[in-house]
Computed example of a mutant assay.
Amino acid sequence: MKEITASELEKRLDEGQHVNMIDVREDDEIATGKVIGAIHIPLGEIPARLDELDKTKPYTLICRSGGRSGRAAEFLEEEGYDVTNMTGGMLSWQGPIE
């Protein structure tokens, strides 16, 4: 599984790179803020919402600490998606949130 640190992701965003991000946390966790531009698909809803994702695009997955996003990355990788897990999750994120 490919991985990226929170600081590496923040650097890419600061440089103006477009990154497709999916935050897999629950609604109450999202209420505390998410990385600007990330879409929200809770982990349990990913299998039912695959039609919202494009297999031709890479995705970076985010959760609180990196565990759930890692599980989501494994699942999506098995389904043929190009995914990267943000290690450390939002606990490591120092950048702006929305």
Rank of each mutant, 00 (worst) to 15 (best):
G66P: 01
L53W: 10
E78D: 09
E79C: 00
R49E: 14
M21W: 05
T84L: 10
G70L: 03
K34C: 09
L9R: 10
R12G: 02
P42H: 15
R49F: 11
H40V: 00
D54Q: 10
T87N: 07
K34D: 08
N20R: 08
P58S: 15
E79H: 02
G88Y: 12
L9P: 05
L76Y: 02
M90A: 04
E29S: 05
Q17R: 07
E15H: 02
K57R: 11
G16C: 08
P96R: 15
E98H: 10
T5V: 04
T84I: 12
L76S: 04
M86Y: 12
L43G: 01
A6T: 09
F75R: 02
N85Y: 13
S69Q: 13
G70I: 01
N85P: 07
W93V: 01
G88V: 08
Y59M: 03
V83C: 10
D23Q: 14
V83K: 11
G67Y: 05
V35L: 11
D51N: 12
E26T: 04
I4A: 08
K34R: 13
G70Y: 05
E78K: 09
I41W: 06
M86G: 14
S65P: 04
W93S: 05
R64Q: 12
S92Y: 09
R71C: 02
I41Q: 04
G95N: 07
S69M: 04
G70P: 05
G37C: 15
L61K: 03
G80L: 08
I22G: 05
L43S: 02
I62V: 07
I30D: 12
L76D: 01
G66I: 00
Y81E: 01
A72I: 03
I4F: 08
R49W: 14
D51H: 13
T32Q: 06
L61G: 06
H18R: 10
A38E: 13
K55W: 03
F75Y: 10
E79W: 00
I22R: 11
L61F: 11
R25D: 12
L61M: 09
I41L: 04
L61Q: 03
E77D: 07
S69E: 15
K11N: 08
R64A: 13
P96I: 01
G70T: 02
D28P: 09
L13A: 14
I62C: 01
E78I: 00
S65V: 15
E29M: 06
I30A: 14
S92M: 10
E45C: 04
P42A: 14
V83M: 10
S69T: 13
N20D: 11
P47L: 01
V35W: 12
R12Q: 11
K55E: 00
I30S: 14
K57I: 02
E3Q: 15
E77L: 06
G88Q: 06
L61T: 03
G44M: 07
G88F: 12
M21Y: 06
E79N: 00
I97G: 12
A31F: 02
H18Q: 10
G70N: 06
T5H: 03
M1S: 11
H18K: 13
I36D: 12
L43P: 03
P47D: 02
R68S: 05
T87P: 01
G33R: 06
E98W: 08
A6N: 15
